[in-house]
Design a protein around this nucleic acid. Structure first.
Lengths: 249, 249
DNA sequence: GCCAATTGCGTACATCGTACTCGGTGGCCT
DNA sequence: AGGCCACCGAGTACGATGTACGCAATTGGC
């Protein structure tokens, strides 16, 4: 395509996909760092200060490297984020799935996904259009969709799995929403309250928004524990799934 | 809090929320542009080239203004995005909802939301943690949740609505996913195919990913029309909703 | 008609991702 | 054993971004 210089970066014409790009070439001095180490550092920063704080320079500083050194391991920041996503997917433990009990399996998956997203809230906000195809993500696909695979055709399986995913995503977003928004804004809790709350209070007092008023009131009431509420929602989704299964499954 | 200069930007201490920030002050020369005009231009650019292309300078150029002029109308780019989101929410036509027929109403909402996201694919990717509270968004909340409000308690209503939203989001993401990913990458279709496809083909040929193989095969088969498929999914979700309603509703 | 508020906007800065380039290192071939 | 060169870490630099600041021009209210 175009002439290459005396050296080229880690990505060449055929190896654009991270997952096909070997981490370690054959010859030369031993690398001082590793993809795993960089990914780990980036996740640590993102957990603490949000994904936008995980800049290349910051990540490099975290592991004691120069900024540009990272590019010896990762073609771009987007690719690094791909690595982070796969690494986090690996935190969802699905060993032994499918087990034969599809309700138990899907419940386990929902719990695991929720727990992972609560540990790494920035991840719940960072939804790509297509699922990644890293090793952990591939394993997840095989195990998760293997649960319903013997019971329904693949297109049904896709739809039902998407439904479950959608529910978990919505539920987690509701759980972590306020906290994330607060962190993102960089405001103190008092400031944030003063601003958002004052506006919402005004809306409620206006009387033009009866439903919003109900929602606000509801939010101030004591609730079932988050876990209970989530389990309840998952059970409902699974009932919906059961209805789509052939009878007697 | 802190001393202000001889002039201040559009945002002051009490007016941080966009929705409480008046667009037009009393005195001074007539503004040459407007929030609506700026929002419109930004949406036009985002539709054509993605949200990341809608930079302040680019938007300003689109309406023939200087870059910094926009800040006379909008406190920050994030706030402008908030305006865009509300403006797009207004495209979901729910006049006459709730009508008394909850299935029809929710189906109409699902169709409208899907159509809106397909017209503005960047919006489907840009999910904030909390829903916005602009005028169109408030109206949507009242109408949409007003549908089930007479039938179920508010917490149930929230859960069921989230379920429907989750389904639509997943379905739309699947529809527009490939196209968006392609655009985001900036590659030509051939390049993108060559790269993604080659990797997927390798995975399929390896034989270690039976489910992925099924998915890929399925994607190559002719389908029900997208619309049919979507309607089917919505109906399933609504059946799930019906199960949660009190008998005879 | 004057004053002050408010306009559009040019300049400037910090920060980002990353291209280019260098001097050094050490595995491989001879 | 010796030399070559692939590969390393990292500094410098560039273009782009969001936006703070300041200035000259404009206009409504007195």
């Amino acid at each position: 395509m175009y002439a290459i210089g005396e050296e080229e970066t880690v990505a060449d014409a055929e190896h654009v996909n991270i997952w096909t790009l070997p981490e370690r070439p054959a010859r030369g001095p031993r690398p001082a760092y590793s993809r795993a180490q960089i990914t780990e550092a980036a996740i640590r920063i993102a957990d603490a200060e949000g994904l936008e704080a995980a800049t290349m320079r910051r990540i490099a500083a975290e592991i004691g490297a120069g900024a540009m050194s990272l590019y010896r391991y990762v073609p771009s920041r987007d690719d690094l984020i791909e690595l982070m996503a796969d690494r986090l997917t690996g935190e969802i433990d699905l060993t032994g799935v499918p087990s034969g009990d599809w309700r138990a399996d899907l419940t386990r998956y929902a719990d695991g996904l929720r727990a992972m997203w609560r540990r790494h809230p920035w991840m719940a906000a960072m939804r790509r259009s297509l699922p990644g195809l890293g090793p952990n993500q591939l394993l997840l696909i095989e195990r998760l969709m293997g649960v319903l695979d013997p019971l329904v055709p693949i297109d049904e399986n896709l739809a039902l799995t998407a439904l479950l995913n959608g529910y978990v995503e919505g539920a987690v977003r509701e759980e972590i929403g306020a906290a994330e928004e607060l962190r993102r804004s960089g405001l103190s809790e008092q400031e944030w309250m003063a601003r958002g709350q004052a506006y919402v209070d005004r809306l409620v007092k206006s009387g033009d928004h009866p439903i919003l008023t109900k929602i606000v009131m509801e939010a101030r009431r004591p609730h079932l524990s988050r876990d209970e509420q989530f389990r309840l929602g998952v059970r409902r989704v699974l009932d919906c799934v059961a209805a789509a299964l052939p009878p007697g499954a």
